[in-house]
């Protein structure tokens, strides 16, 4: 990876690297509420079979994960844990925010205990709206993220010069 870090990676190698990153996303699951049922259906059931997309939903810890799917209601109490687990993930890392609660607080928009959007704590790459979203919606989010990874300039990202791209919103 020395070439990548020095920012001198040849374009064909970038394509190859992105291709392999794209199809071996280790996805960490943070099911915080009922959306986790839909996430479980999308990630751990043969009907939706997320592994056909090249997503491996079984990392044992955030230190082995490339992608995290935060689904469910984020409360102020659990915010430190989310931040801490996110910081444990190795870069490059991606975040999918699944469901209205995680996106903006959802039906608990006026609650005294619910965080109004996980993007206040961690940068979000893909928003999946819905209450809850269908498993297909989450899979579309994964596919859109894969497209982004495919076209990403890794050297630029490592140098830290790249501005954060606009987050993807599924269904828009």
């Amino acid at each position: 990876m020395g070439l990548v870090e020095s920012g001198k990676i040849p374009t064909p190698l970038t394509k190859l690297l992105n291709l392999s990153r794209k199809y071996s996303i280790w996805a960490y699951q943070w099911g915080l509420a009922c959306c986790a049922i839909e996430m479980g259906a999308a990630f751990a059931s043969p009907r939706y079979d997320v592994m056909r997309l090249g997503v491996i939903p079984f990392p044992a810890s955030p230190r082995q994960a490339d992608l995290v799917v935060i689904s469910g209601t984020v409360t102020d109490k659990i915010v430190p844990a989310i931040r801490r687990l996110y910081e444990q993930m190795p870069d490059p890392k991606y975040v999918i925010s699944m469901g209205s609660c995680t996106n903006c607080g959802g039906p608990y928009w006026d609650s005294y205990s619910v965080t109004k959007g996980v993007d206040q704590i961690v940068p979000v790459d893909v928003y999946v709206p819905g209450c809850p979203p269908r498993p297909e919606a989450l899979l579309e989010g994964v596919v859109l993220l894969q497209e982004r990874i495919h076209n990403e300039d890794m050297a630029e990202r490592w140098r830290g010069g790249q501005d954060r791209p606009e987050p993807i919103v599924v269904g828009r």
Binding site: G105, W109, D110, S111, Y112, S113, K116
Partner: peptide, 12 residues
């Protein structure tokens, strides 16, 4: 504050 007291405001 004590959220279930009636004077507790839901700021949102």
């Amino acid at each position: 504050g004590h959220p279930l007291r009636k004077e507790f405001p839901l700021l949102a």
